[in-house]
Design a protein around this nucleic acid. Structure first.
Lengths: 133, 133
DNA sequence: ATCGATGCAAAGCGTTTGCAGGGGT
DNA sequence: ACCCCTGCAAACGCTTTGCATCGAT
């Protein structure tokens, strides 16, 4: 925390501790309600800013770029996407879609997931980076 | 359009035609402004509902589930995710992260993208489906 | 004629911001 | 003591909804 060059505060520490202790990928609101027991006066705005602080120093990741607008795609064939991490811009990735990619990660993945209660219907792959210029 | 069991309207047809004609992955607002020339009385709400109609009958895809809340992850190691397409719930995928997956799609992908002006910094893979019960 | 779709405006939800006061260094 | 962070509330941006009207079938 302080090692990452950010000031220690009770709230930030609590947000970080909670986030590191669960694997449920909570929303800001989830974190807020989880912390209210121990820190009754914490505000939702603080949770938001703390989370973004943690992301900016690399101690957390944001899984969905909510807040931006939804983007739509009218092309029939499935394909991968390039996403500019700074602007949110999306373009198509010029490469063919691989229906067997999940099998290449693990040949039994889909079956194992089914056995654990997750019915797979597809996957989505985004290459992250930056469009230059 | 009608083949998919949805009523033909000028607005829907225009939204669909525009979406199919571009590869820019427009936002609802982008579509709205693009159509205003031809359909000056179209409303933004109609564009939103038309887009969702197209998605529901499979003629379009929504690339980002904006509107939902952002989800955060405090775990250090990179990993894949499972996403419930109906609830938005996210869990970790129990499989090791493959740093070379992009190379398995195309060994020269990263270089080719660099040559075309996209600097790759990573990728994100989500397995889509449904948590049962 | 029917019933779903449109257009408008207002509400809704998640997120960010302005500002005054508090706490970490 | 300094300055950043917090808490509150209000603003914000994107999306959805209620309702009366319109239009495709």
């Amino acid at each position: 925390l302080e090692a990452a060059g950010c000031r220690y505060t009770r709230q930030r520490a609590a947000v970080y501790a909670y986030l590191a202790s669960v694997d449920s990928h909570p929303t800001a609101e989830d974190v807020f309600y989880a912390l209210r027991n121990r820190l009754p006066r914490i505000s939702l705005a603080t949770v938001y800013t703390s989370l973004e602080t943690l992301v900016s120093v690399g101690l957390a990741t944001r899984l969905v770029a909510a807040g931006g607008a939804a983007r739509y795609d009218g092309r029939g064939e499935r394909h991968y996407h390039l996403r500019d991490e700074e602007t949110g811009e999306v373009r198509d990735l010029p490469a063919s879609f691989d229906d067997e990619l999940l099998d290449k990660i693990d040949p039994q993945l889909v079956e194992r997931l089914a056995a654990s209660g997750f019915r797979v219907s597809g996957y989505r792959l985004e290459v992250l980076g930056r469009f230059e210029r």
